[in-house]
Amino acid sequence: MSVLDREILSLMRRASEEAIMPHYRTLSASQIENKAADDVVTVADRAAEDLLCEGLARLNPGIAIVGEENVHANPQVAELLSGACWIVDPLDGTNNFAKGEAPFGILIALADGGVVQSGWIYDCITGRFCAAHFGEGAYIGGERIKAGTTGEVPPVAAISLVFLNEERRAVIKREIAPHYRLVDIPRCAAEQYPRLALGENDVSIFERTLAWDHAAGSLWLNEAGGKVARPDGSPYRVNEWERRGLIGAASPELWQAMADLYPPEST
Rank of each mutant, 00 (worst) to 15 (best):
E7F: 07
L11S: 10
L11N: 11
M12Q: 14
R14M: 12
E17R: 14
M21G: 06
P22V: 12
T26M: 13
T26N: 11
T26F: 10
S28V: 06
Q31N: 11
Q31K: 11
Q31Y: 09
E33Q: 15
E33P: 07
A36P: 10
T42V: 14
D50C: 08
E54A: 14
G62N: 14
I63L: 13
I65L: 10
G67F: 08
H72F: 10
N74P: 04
A78K: 14
L80R: 14
S82I: 02
G83K: 06
W86L: 02
L91H: 02
N96F: 03
F97R: 00
F97L: 02
A102K: 00
A111Q: 05
V115C: 04
V116W: 02
W120Q: 02
C124E: 04
I125E: 09
G127C: 06
G127N: 04
R128K: 11
R128T: 01
F129I: 04
C130L: 08
G135H: 07
E136T: 07
G141W: 05
G141M: 08
R144G: 13
R144Q: 15
T150R: 05
V153P: 03
A158Y: 03
I159W: 09
L161V: 13
V162L: 13
N165M: 08
R169K: 15
A170R: 15
P178F: 10
Y180R: 03
R181F: 06
D184F: 01
P194N: 05
R195W: 00
R195D: 00
A197I: 01
G199D: 01
E207M: 07
T209Q: 03
H214V: 04
L221H: 04
G225I: 05
G225F: 02
R237D: 04
R244D: 08
G248D: 03
E253K: 11
L261Y: 12
Y262M: 15
Y262N: 10
P264C: 12
